[in-house]
Design a protein around this nucleic acid. Structure first.
Length: 171
DNA sequence: GCCAACGTTGGC
DNA sequence: GCCAACGTTGGC
């Protein structure tokens, strides 16, 4: 039973490292969103996300960059295991074991956008002018998306904003 | 608590 | 590969 209204998010990934297809190919189309080492991004995951929230999966450092698909939050927040793994590139020796610094959520891939929505397109769309992603200098890898922005991006991507996730989840 | 130096992000 | 923008670190 949801305690709050569904929220929407945008999460960045470099497709060379982990693409939307990689997410769909993961067991249960689910993965843990590890490696976030920015406090603001962590706070969104730890404090504000809830299971079922919508996620725009964004390809950064890509040619071209843009939104590749939609996903959803698939777990409550929990400690990022990679912070304690000295062999992992995201190892954080300063994170206290008794008070871990970094938390994450699981995300589940839902559906690839029929049409990839490029950053250029997002920037040229008047309805998306206030989107956090297109603000100057924004480097956050996890950021909130407004409901109307979510709907518009899905339209641009060729998904009707109704009837999407349930049909996709069935398969 | 300031702020310069440094490292990272990510578009171009 | 360049570099602007930003976050973090550490000296003082």
């Amino acid at each position: 039973m949801p305690r709050k209204k569904t929220k929407y998010w945008l999460m960045k990934s470099e497709p060379d490292t982990f693409s939307f297809q990689d997410l769909l190919n993961s067991p249960k189309q689910t993965t843990l969103w590890d490696g976030v080492r920015n406090y603001q991004a962590r706070n969104f995951m730890r404090d504000e996300m809830q299971v079922g929230d919508g996620i725009l999966f964004y390809h950064s450092n890509a040619k071209p960059p843009g939104v590749a698909g939609i996903a959803e939050v698939a777990s409550e927040a929990y400690d990022d295991p990679t912070q304690f793994d000295s062999t992992d590139s995201h190892y954080d020796p300063k994170s206290p074991v008794d008070a871990p610094r970094w938390q994450l959520v699981d995300i589940r891939g839902i559906e690839e956008l029929p049409t990839f929505v490029t950053l250029t397109e997002l920037k040229s769309e008047p309805a998306l002018a206030d989107m956090a992603l297109v603000q100057r200098g924004n480097r956050l890898s996890v950021m909130p998306v407004k409901a109307n922005e979510w709907g518009r991006v899905l339209e641009l991507g060729g998904l009707k904003s109704r009837a999407r996730s349930k049909a996709a989840r069935k398969g």
